[in-house]
């Protein structure tokens, strides 16, 4: 396969990682703990989308392409589930805990197991897929460039671009976005300035849950929907967040694409096969942790 084709695949996979990483980074910086349940939160979103998708099929709506209102319904249903699950977990588990980052970290792993087991119980362990026709590579793109790009890949990258751009404007120019950045930068000073943690923390879970769910739906769209896929992608998302610098939303975006590219382009390294895609990403992550824990876009830690 050509290097450019690998890079294209990397951008697609990177888009999914970006969606997970931005949410995880939000929670890491404002909630102040690494949420090990974030991967399984994505899966919850993916299954939320699946329920809606199957429901549509049941009432006889048969999408002819992935570019369809059915996809929108699938995504929105996934988002709704992601948000509900994230916010409910906050109120039921994390908020009453009222403890330090390490206790939250360990608890979040318990939460991950709960999500995973409930999904597994509800949907079984076998892989599922969304009911959209699988089409081959888009002919015109293949003729022009020789690259295999499917409709699904196009949807994932375009939708991620829209989300990331919207997020940029919200964060940069809205007062809520500024408050979120302030709380992520310095939580104490944000409170001293009069920002209510309730508002930022709730926004963080809504935003984090929605982005995670979207990433989960796209992960399911890109490959298959499996109850255990959350953990596989979790460490890649951590790698992206750490590469970009914890708390830096833009860092998470950059880190997501970088890790996606590293994951898919591993075969370019002589003697290393695609089976080591994840390993290469983890090596990058560990190196960053050791030499520049603030991330490539983050501040030097003091």
């Amino acid at each position: 396969m050509s290097v450019i084709q690998l890079a294209v695949d990397g951008i697609v996979y990177g888009s999914i990682i970006v969606l997970g990483a931005v949410g995880l980074s939000l929670v890491y910086s404002i909630g102040d703990f690494p949420n090990f349940a974030h991967g399984d939160l994505m899966v919850a979103g993916a299954y939320g989308g699946l329920v809606a998708n199957l429901g549509l099929t049941q009432i006889g709506l048969q999408p002819t392409s992935v570019f369809s209102p059915e996809l929108l319904v699938t995504i929105v249903a996934g988002l709704a589930i992601g948000i509900v699950v994230a916010v409910a977990t906050h109120y039921l588990v994390f908020k009453p805990l009222d403890s330090g980052p390490i206790a939250l970290l360990i608890t979040s792993f318990g939460v991950a197991l709960i999500y995973r087991s409930l999904i597994w119980m509800g949907f079984g362990s076998s892989a599922r897929s969304y009911n959209f026709p699988r089409s081959g590579p888009i002919g015109s793109i293949r003729d022009a460039t020789g690259l295999a790009v499917t409709n699904r890949m196009l949807v994932i990258v375009l939708a991620t671009a829209v989300v990331v751009t919207t997020l940029h404007f919200v964060l940069q120019y809205s007062m809520l976005g500024k408050k979120m950045r302030a709380a992520a930068d310095n939580g104490d000073l944000a409170r001293i300035s009069g920002i209510r943690p309730r508002e930022t923390v709730l926004t963080m879970w809504v935003g984090g849950g929605a982005l995670a769910a979207m990433g989960g739906v796209f992960l399911g769209l890109h490959t298959l929907i499996r109850p255990l896929m959350g953990f596989d992608i979790l460490l890649l998302i951590f790698a992206a967040v750490i590469l970009g610098g914890i708390g830096s939303i833009y860092g998470a975006m950059l880190g997501g694409f970088a890790i996606g590219l590293a994951h898919e382009m591993t075969p370019v390294i002589p003697g290393v096969g695609s089976e080591y895609g994840a390993a290469v990403a983890f090596v990058i992550m560990i190196i960053i942790l050791l030499v520049r824990p603030g991330g490539i876009l983050g501040e030097e830690t003091t």
Binding site: D185, L189, E299
Partner: peptide, 8 residues
């Protein structure tokens, strides 16, 4: 200390 939002 930490009396400004350094990334803002």
């Amino acid at each position: 200390t930490d009396n400004v939002f350094s990334t803002l």
